[in-house]
Amino acid sequence: MTRAYAEVIGDPIAQSKSPAIHGFWLGKLGIDAEYRACHVRPDEVPSYLGERRSDPAWRGCNVTMPHKQAVMPHLDRLDPLAARIGAVNTIVHEADGTLTGYNTDAPGFLEPLRPLLGREHLFRMARVLGTGGAARAIIAALAAENIVIVLAGRDPAKARALLDELDPGGEHHAVDIAHFAEPTDFAFDDRAGCFDVIVNASPLGMAGQPPLAFDFSHAPPGSIVYDIVTHPADTPLLQQARAAGFRTVDGLAMLIGQAAEAFEKFFSASPPRDADRELRAVLAA
């Protein structure tokens, strides 16, 4: 019998940490399967999915940029969350040969925040910086947790349109990303009983990119600062946040969380999350 496998597709793909994550878990659990990386160019998406449909050993794939929306017309089914977000990052090859699209970015993003979101709050607010593909899942995830969102982008009109599309009934706000770069003398009210999170959903701060310009006078006391950039995991924004006394969450938390959801769908097994610290060391090597 041919060895079962899953993979990640994208263009480019060499930078993906998914093979290291899934390979680590497969090894820990002793599962006889593998996880690969496959370079798929935009014009190759239809033929790639057509070929994989007929391969019984293929369990599915993760989808990274720029294919998260392009794969959708070629699937048989969309999970409701993926349909609402308008992006697919996990495709599962079902036993009947059909393809189902999921979005595990949203639950992966929320995973490190769950202990706090399990509590009751008087008010919940998120300041999200960035309006690209990653922001879609983050906005949908936050809105589902009754969090008021201030979405900042270089084009506030695009930010407004994204909010209206993903949570049309929400009382959210769109601003220019430059707003957060300059100091403010705004006096925050008592934040006891409130939940505040600041999210960098942009590539700013990634290796080779300029840092995200954010002045921490815009951060309410007690805020969590969450940066989804994974290279480096400890970004300038997170370093500045810790120096200012804020709690932080790095991009590996979301990356590992979304991978765990996909792993269960591919291999019908729960990944060994008690080994997360060891996994992080592998990813940092």
Score class of each variant (00 low, 15 high):
residue 1 M to K: 14
residue 4 A to V: 04
residue 5 Y to P: 02
residue 8 V to L: 07
residue 10 G to S: 08
residue 12 P to Q: 06
residue 12 P to H: 02
residue 12 P to W: 01
residue 13 I to A: 11
residue 14 A to V: 09
residue 14 A to M: 00
residue 14 A to I: 01
residue 16 S to Y: 00
residue 24 F to Y: 04
residue 29 L to C: 06
residue 29 L to N: 12
residue 36 R to Y: 00
residue 40 V to I: 12
residue 42 P to D: 02
residue 45 V to P: 05
residue 49 L to E: 01
residue 53 R to I: 03
residue 53 R to W: 06
residue 54 S to H: 14
residue 54 S to N: 10
residue 60 G to N: 06
residue 64 T to G: 03
residue 67 H to I: 11
residue 73 P to N: 10
residue 78 L to D: 00
residue 79 D to C: 04
residue 79 D to T: 05
residue 89 N to C: 02
residue 90 T to K: 08
residue 93 H to K: 09
residue 95 A to R: 13
residue 105 D to C: 02
residue 105 D to V: 02
residue 109 F to W: 03
residue 111 E to N: 12
residue 113 L to P: 15
residue 115 P to F: 00
residue 119 R to N: 13
residue 119 R to Q: 14
residue 122 L to W: 06
residue 129 L to N: 08
residue 129 L to H: 06
residue 133 G to K: 13
residue 134 A to C: 09
residue 136 R to E: 14
residue 136 R to Q: 15
residue 137 A to Y: 07
residue 140 A to L: 09
residue 144 A to Y: 00
residue 146 N to H: 06
residue 151 L to K: 12
residue 154 R to A: 09
residue 156 P to Q: 05
residue 159 A to S: 08
residue 162 L to F: 06
residue 163 L to V: 09
residue 167 D to N: 11
residue 167 D to L: 03
residue 168 P to G: 13
residue 172 H to V: 06
residue 175 V to D: 12
residue 177 I to C: 12
residue 181 A to P: 05
residue 183 P to E: 13
residue 185 D to C: 12
residue 186 F to G: 12
residue 200 N to F: 01
residue 201 A to V: 13
residue 203 P to F: 00
residue 206 M to K: 08
residue 210 P to R: 09
residue 212 L to Y: 04
residue 214 F to L: 12
residue 214 F to I: 12
residue 215 D to S: 11
residue 215 D to P: 12
residue 216 F to S: 03
residue 217 S to M: 09
residue 219 A to R: 07
residue 221 P to C: 05
residue 224 I to L: 15
residue 226 Y to D: 03
residue 228 I to P: 14
residue 230 T to W: 01
residue 235 T to V: 04
residue 235 T to N: 05
residue 236 P to L: 07
residue 240 Q to V: 09
residue 240 Q to N: 14
residue 252 L to P: 08
residue 253 A to Y: 03
residue 255 L to E: 11
residue 258 Q to G: 03
residue 263 F to N: 11
residue 263 F to D: 09
residue 268 S to M: 05
residue 272 P to D: 02
residue 273 R to A: 04
residue 279 L to A: 00
residue 279 L to K: 01
residue 284 A to W: 00
